[in-house]
Amino acid sequence: MNFLTLFARNLWHGPYTDVFPFGPATTPEHLRARITFDPKQCEGCRLCEKVCPAGAIRFTRTPGGMTFDCWHATCVFCGTCEFYCPTKAVKQSNDWHLAHEQGEKYAQVEHGLIPNQICVECGAKALDTSPAVSHIKPPLSETEVSELRARCPKCRNKYLRSRKTS
């Protein structure tokens, strides 16, 4: 009797083959594939560059600020960068459409720029990084975070110290 139910189910179900090259593919939600980078959230700690086993991530200081580059042709999609990123600026999406022709080999780069800004307090030029606020107690309000963000690292320290005393 069992084989008859199997037979009926297979007749109803149709082929199990993925339609992929002729239609959309089924992709698991948590598949580890293409890296995405959000420069707005980056703290500039460069931890992802340090932990990347394939050396795919590189930060470079440029006159305009600091650039983030992740080359997908050497990335092994281990997810270590996402795990260690304190603000989740580096994330892994489930977009696996990475096959490309040889001419586009060196264009498979996720690029982001953390721009320079002028500190509102001392006028020095510093990176517009997201402030590291996750461990600060009591937690900062949103206006405090935006005030902190507009400052250079030295003035950020000064701001936090003055906050503690008051």
Binding site: D18, F20, P21, A25, L31, A33, H72, A73, C75, V76, F77, C78, W96, H97, L98, A99, H100, E101, Q102, K105, Q108
Partner: peptide, 27 residues
């Protein structure tokens, strides 16, 4: 390997998933 062989299509991934390989073969 493109120093030694004239490569035409690259399929990155470690390893690439089967659908990605099919995509590369289609290219």
């Amino acid at each position: 390997i493109d120093q030694y062989f004239p490569v035409d299509v690259n399929v990155p991934g470690c390893p690439p998933r089967p659908q990605a390989i099919i995509e590369g073969v289609a290219k």
